[in-house]
């Protein structure tokens, strides 16, 4: 079948989204006031390390001053990547059509 891979990918992503919605509902119910779920795993590991009394010996040279600016750089990263992928697939596709 021509679109087998697309269908499988669609089903997996849909299942992922449904599982997220279900777990999110149960997590939100059990959350204490002011607590926030869905933090980063990187940060959780850092918390474990800090709870053992370790102090990072150096801090980053520059940190995004706010969450908005951080998300700007993350979106920029994704946009640069997506642009390159789209450009070259389009290039290949049109060359293939021309030949």
């Amino acid at each position: 079948m021509k679109y087998k891979a697309e269908i499988i990918a669609g089903i997996v992503i849909l299942a992922f989204a449904i599982i997220f919605l279900l777990t999110n509902a149960s997590i939100q119910q059990n959350l204490a006031e002011g607590e926030e779920a869905w933090g980063g795993a990187d940060g959780q590991a850092a918390e474990i390390i800090e709870s053992s009394g370790y102090e990072p010996w150096i801090s980053p040279v520059w940190e995004p001053p706010s969450g908005e600016i951080e998300s700007l750089f993350f979106s920029l990263q994704a946009a640069i990547g997506a642009l390159i992928i789209g450009y070259f697939f389009g290039y290949y596709r049109s060359r293939q059509a021309a030949s």
């Binding site: 777990t23 980063g40 795993a41 990263q77 990547g81 997506a82 992928i85 070259f88």
Partner: peptide
């Protein structure tokens, strides 16, 4: 080389997406 650029761009896109997992944290 274009394919190398695509592969590199792919790392760019995927590593910028923080996705929620089943146990209440994101990676």
């Amino acid at each position: 080389i274009p394919l190398l650029a695509v592969a590199g761009a792919f790392v760019f896109v995927l590593s910028s997406l923080k996705l929620p997992s089943v146990n209440g944290s994101c990676s």
